[in-house]
Design a binder for these strands. Structure first.
Lengths: 123, 123
DNA sequence: TGCGAAACTGGCCGGGTGGCCAGGACTTCC
DNA sequence: GGAAGTCCTGGCCACCCGGCCAGTTTCGCA
C-alpha cells in the first residue's frame, strides 16, 4: 500500500437526502486533513444513509438455528450441515423448517436472503 | 417524522481499519452539530470503508442471467422464474447452471450469497 | 458467408429438499 | 409435579434441483 499517513482523508458523500447531504457538506467542507471526494473520485471511505432496517434480536432464533443458518449461507447442503454440526440430516431439516417458518421464507435461498436483509447474518 | 432540523447529526463510524478509524474519530470528534454514534446507537448515516476493489466488470453476466439471478434472490423456484420470464423450466435451469459456473457456487443459495457479497445484486 | 455467443427447449436421472407424521431427552419456569 | 421450550431422531413421500445428453433459432462480427 502506498498510503501516505499524512495525506488528507478523502470521504465520498453518498446521501440521497438533499437536506442531510447539504448539512454534512457544510459541516465537513473545511476540516483540515479531510476532504470530500469529487463525483467518481476514489475515496477511502463513504458516508452512506443508515436505513432503519437494523433491528436485531427481534427475530427469536435459537443458537442452533443460527448455526444452521450460517452454514446455509455458505451454500452447504443439509448433509454437509449435519456432518459439520455432528447431528443427523433429519435434525438439520427440522431446524431448516423452523427457520423457513420464522423467517417467512419459501425455501433455503429465500431464508438466507431474508436473514441477510434483516441483518441476522452477514454475507 | 420527529426530525429536529437543528439537532446534531449522528454519524456511525463503521471502519475496520484501526488507523483510519482513529484518524476519522480525531477529525470528527469536535465538530459542532455533528456527533459520532455510540455503539448500537441509531444514526442518520454511517461511514463505511470504500475500497477501490469493488468490482472489475460485474463478472460478465448476461442480461438474462441477471434476470434469473434477481428472481433467485427473491426465493423463486425454477418453475416460478420460468413463469415470470415467460420461458421454459429447462431454459431457467440452463441459466442457473451458467450462474453456478460463473459465480463459482455449489447451489442456488450459494450463488445468491456470492452475488450479494460481490455486489452483483442487492438484497 | 461462415462462425461463435447467447438464448431457448427437450428428455433423463440421481440426489437434495421440504412437509408431514411420530417420538424421546433435557432444562427452565410456574 | 406439570407445562413449555429446545434439541434431537426416525420414516415416508412428492417435488425440486442440478447435471448430463441432445437440439433449435437469432444475433453480431469477422
Amino acid at each position: 500500500m502506498s498510503e501516505d499517513k499524512t495525506a488528507e482523508i478523502v470521504l465520498a458523500l453518498e446521501i440521497d437526502d438533499p437536506a442531510l447531504a447539504d448539512r454534512l457538506t457544510a459541516l465537513l467542507g473545511n476540516i483540515p486533513g479531510l476532504r470530500l471526494a469529487a463525483p467518481g473520485e476514489p475515496a477511502a471511505a463513504a458516508i452512506v444513509a443508515r436505513d432503519p432496517r437494523i433491528m436485531p434480536e427481534d427475530i427469536a432464533l435459537t443458537q442452533r438455528e443460527l448455526d444452521v443458518l450460517a452454514l446455509m449461507a455458505e451454500g452447504a447442503s443439509n448433509k454437509m450441515i449435519a456432518r459439520q454440526l455432528g447431528i443427523s440430516v433429519h435434525t438439520v431439516k427440522f431446524h431448516v423448517g423452523s427457520l423457513l417458518d420464522k423467517l417467512d421464507a419459501t425455501g433455503r435461498t429465500d431464508a438466507v436472503a431474508h436473514a441477510a436483509r434483516r441483518g441476522v447474518i452477514e454475507l
